[in-house]
């Protein structure tokens, strides 16, 4: 195995393009190094992208934020404006592993590891975030929902890697939230994850909503049918019940060591409802803040 630590995106792209064997990007390394140590993968080349300054930045762009692929969860949490705009995404990223893991783990890494249970991905999908992919050819922008196809599988082509993730601007009275179910309070892989992003109108009616579920299918799901139920409503009890039922119905989980089909379906609805309530509260809080 070779280790390279390029200082520019183009240099990194060249290294990847030249490599004939198995190449892997090292960002936080919290999945990669575990997989290497357990013998799951034996890469020929590891490209550490943490020496590329551009990838260590959180940049304002078109009212949103572009988060570099090497930015850790802990660094995101220290960025006040990002936390204010997309609190659910930042929280989701900082549910990954321990404080120690959050000091290294990145959104891009969580996305490219392509686990159906990845914590930040449902939040990113709900946020309609877009990954910028670079490689041998011209860069391209790929919506996060289209980045993965199944466990461990991404749509990245040979030599390509994620350079950054773009979180768009938000309308007034918007909020997001991510909740996951784990047996303990920390350190577990999500048994179910639910990300909600929504916007309210002046009267507190929901004008836009997205729901995403994790760990209940081979890849993270965008559940448009459930989200539509919220639109036009005041998020009253009855709507939320229907919303939860639609979320449960959309879940297509399996039985495994972390949970059962029944449990995951049921809890999908519970978390979707709870996340929607938090997102709505946040949407209203942003309005209050705006008035100040």
């Amino acid at each position: 195995m070779r280790y390279e630590a390029p200082t520019s995106v183009s240099e990194a792209a060249k290294l990847l393009a030249k490599e004939k064997g198995l190449a892997r990007i090292l960002a936080g390394g919290t999945d990669l190094i575990v997989q290497m140590k357990s013998g799951m993968i034996e890469p020929d080349l590891v490209v550490d992208i943490k020496r590329i300054d551009a990838l260590k930045r959180i940049k304002k762009e078109k009212g949103g934020f572009r988060v570099g692929a090497a930015v850790s969860g802990a660094e995101m949490e220290e960025h006040e404006e990002l936390c204010a705009l997309w609190p659910g995404v930042v929280e989701a990223t900082n549910l990954i592993g321990s404080t120690q893991v959050q000091g290294r783990a990145t959104m891009a890494g969580n996305l490219c590891n392509a686990s159906p249970a990845a914590d930040c991905v449902p939040a990113l999908v709900a946020a309609d975030a877009v990954a910028r992919v670079v490689g041998p050819k011209k860069g391209r922008d790929v919506p996060v929902i289209k980045m993965t196809t199944g466990p461990g599988k991404t749509t990245l082509k040979r030599g390509e890697f994620v350079e950054s993730i773009f979180l768009p601007s938000r309308k007034k009275r918007s909020g997001d939230a991510y909740l996951r179910f784990i047996p303990r309070t920390e350190m577990d892989i999500a048994v179910v994850g639910a990300g909600v992003s929504l916007t309210l109108d002046k009267n507190g009616k929901c004008s836009d909503a997205r729901l995403s579920l994790g760990a209940v299918a081979a890849k993270v799901l965008l559940v448009e049918r459930a989200a539509k139920i919220l639109i036009g409503s005041n998020l009253d009890e009855e709507t939320l019940e229907k919303f939860a039922a639609a979320a449960s119905a959309a879940a297509k989980p399996i039985d495994d060591k972390r949970g059962t089909v029944d449990f995951r379906k049921k809890v999908s609805g519970v978390l979707a409802r709870r996340a929607a309530i938090i997102a709505a509260e946040r949407a209203m809080t942003t309005e209050k803040k705006g008035k100040k």
């Binding site: 280790y3 630590a5 090292l26 936080g28 390394g29 919290t30 190094i33 575990v34 140590k37 590891v46 550490d48 943490k50 850790s72 802990a74 321990s98 404080t99 120690q100 893991v101 000091g103 290294r104």
Partner: peptide, 20 residues
């Protein structure tokens, strides 16, 4: 647990080469 440039991390999840 160790710190790298003041950031708390697990030493088992970083490569020795990264410490340069």
């Amino acid at each position: 647990s160790v710190t790298i440039d003041g950031r708390l991390v697990c030493a088992c999840l970083a490569l020795g080469a990264e410490a340069d």
